[in-house]
Design a binder for these strands. Structure first.
Lengths: 351, 351
DNA sequence: ATCACTGGTGGGAGCGCTCCCACAGTACCT
DNA sequence: AGGTACTGTGGGAGCGCTCCCACCAGTGAT
């Protein structure tokens, strides 16, 4: 039914002006109705809404973006190759939370992978062009230049897993310290006393915090902290094996292990088995992440669960307020926000 | 260093006009250089490029979109909940191909899930607003209204897995017919003669084609087609079990089974085992999809591989030409395009 | 010398919005 | 009666591009 105009333009989508003419009001008034301004009388609003419905009017996003200097879109940036994104349920959970929280909004979510250098290049261009109003950053390494680029471009951003205690970006984190504590307190409660800790890579802030929780839990219970019972892994299964081997040689009598991730716990379990230790009878084992591995391990692994989906929701919340705050020009200065969500210990047969 | 202007606008990004002034040329010339028009002298081009570099000019996408009536973005629409998207490697492979093919382009890819009704609603709005230049459609059900919506809105679209032989959208498919043939020919070559077929849901076009390949391969080899050896499954493991049970009761002497998917093959395998049949000694088994299941099955499953990543690339190719063709206004009419990519039989121990 | 062309270039018009200023109308005070 | 204030409204200006027409040299043919 669409009548084609003279030039190549297709479709003849109605414009604000046409809606205004139809409703017998001015352009500005229609704009106010569309944007939900309260300064419109009920009668006028009704007339405009009728015209919008009759004409099937849909705002032109490009025009709006140009005039208002915003895009109504935010990006979820994953500085990893796509493969890892799909492999780890972490991202899937995060995305679910983000999507849910966004569904009440007009905001559009873009998923951007920046694993390769080339993709990084494109991302930088993309951000420089201000094609999004804000950015969600997940799984960022300590030396990544991305956060700096974002602050330089003055693009609102929220990072999941702050890079340090002094993180300059608004951040959302789970309570790694509390998670570490609860794991150790649980083991102590089970009557274990020689509790080892396989940490994650210690340049990852969260791994430091978990270790701190481990230390404080022991100390507060009146146990001395034996540094020989702390051995760094690197979040891999192989790293877990190596660390466990080392720990076992240092103290064959240890009766519990708190691993900084489920994957490392899986590695530790192998070594313990080979050394003839029964789990949990001889050595109790606790992991971190409550991943699928934990559920399927033999015996099923006690693990610290992070509320990843909730973290996604929190990130959106913070980002949206940050974007809203920026709009009225006054950059409110230095009060960086930070959210920390509680973890939960999921007890299974391994402890 | 950015000096703030009088009003609230932030940042002072350079505009075309500023680049033009700096390079000592007109606005139009800069635009030509940016867009790679050949009608610019080398000297002028160099001057403009220098000015662009000095000023760090990045085109304003919104302005371009408004003026040129295009967005330089395409959407990958997944009419499934996110969960399935992550669960099935199909999507991951497809995304890899799409991303790779797009990386030479200025085009931006959006990932849109439309599993729930609410998400569908948003998607419709999104498309009506013409926020993308084209759409990639994957895993669409036969009765989905989305394709019609797209043609109505005159948005270029490419679908993976056409819904029927009369698919109205440009489509990319793997050679399901050839895949079915090759599976059966392989089994015949192994000396099997009573070959059963567990089909997928027959309202899925690809499942029909696989079954057609099965029939023709038998017929061309001089074997009669016994309809009692064809039993529909529904792509699930349970469906595979049911179909296998039925087939075995109809013909206890069958010596091979071609299942329309690896998952159904897994179901069939269970039933065969319980019935005391050895694989492949008594009954040879072939699946379809070459998924992780196939590799991990005991014994490893012979399966037909679809070139999913290549399909992703092909979809982008077709979509981009479709978008380009549309630009010069003349809608070239009725010659719908269609690409069919070859499959490959991966032989393992089950046959 | 005149008349086509042709490759290069400048800049007006306009894309469809938002923002904001101006102004009419009403209400409520002095 | 005149002021003041506030609600609701219309429409100009302008966001930063692309498109296209007009125009200016050259160049070669007449």
């Amino acid at each position: 039914m669409a009548s084609h105009g003279g030039r190549g333009r297709s479709g003849g989508r109605p414009t604000l002006e046409e809606v205004a003419a139809r409703a017998g009001v001015g352009r500005g008034t229609v704009s106010r109705v569309i944007n939900g301004s309260p300064r419109v009388s009920d009668a006028t609003r009704a007339a405009v809404e009728a015209a919008v419905a009759e004409l099937g009017y849909v705002p032109n996003t490009a025009a709006r973006a140009l005039a208002a200097n915003r895009t109504d879109a935010i990006a979820l940036v994953v500085p990893e190759p796509e493969t890892r994104f799909f492999a780890e349920p972490y991202f899937s959970d995060m995305l679910r939370g983000v999507g849910a929280e966004l569904s009440d909004t007009e905001m559009q979510l873009l998923l951007i992978f920046a694993g390769s250098d080339r993709e990084r290049q494109r991302l930088a261009q993309y951000l420089a062009a201000h094609r999004v109003d804000g950015v969600l950053l997940v799984s960022v390494h300590a030396d990544d230049p991305l956060p700096d680029l974002l602050s330089q471009l003055e693009i609102p951003a929220v990072i999941s897993g702050p890079r340090s205690a002094a993180e300059s970006l608004t951040s959302v984190d789970s309570d790694n310290y509390g998670g570490g504590r609860s794991a150790v307190e649980h083991l102590l409660g089970r009557g274990r006393s020689r509790i080892a800790h396989i940490t994650g890579r210690l340049d990852v802030y969260g791994a430091q915090r978990r270790a701190a929780g481990y230390r404080d839990a022991l100390r507060d219970a009146g146990h001395p902290v034996d540094e020989l019972l702390i051995e760094p892994g690197d979040f891999t299964e192989e790293g877990g094996r190596r660390a466990m081997t080392t720990l076992l040689s240092r103290d064959p009598g240890l009766d519990a292990v708190f691993a900084g991730s489920d994957v490392m716990a899986a590695g530790a379990r192998q070594v313990l088995r080979e050394a003839g230790r029964r789990i949990p009878d001889d050595v109790a084992l606790v992991g971190y992440d409550d991943s699928a591995i934990a559920r399927h391990m033999d015996p099923p692994l006690t693990s610290v669960r992070q509320p990843i989906e909730e973290m996604g929701r929190a990130m959106i919340d913070l980002l949206l307020t940050e974007i809203a705050d920026r709009r009225p020009a006054t950059s409110r200065g230095l009060d960086r926000r930070r959210a920390v969500l509680p973890t939960e210990l999921v007890v299974r047969a391994s402890s």
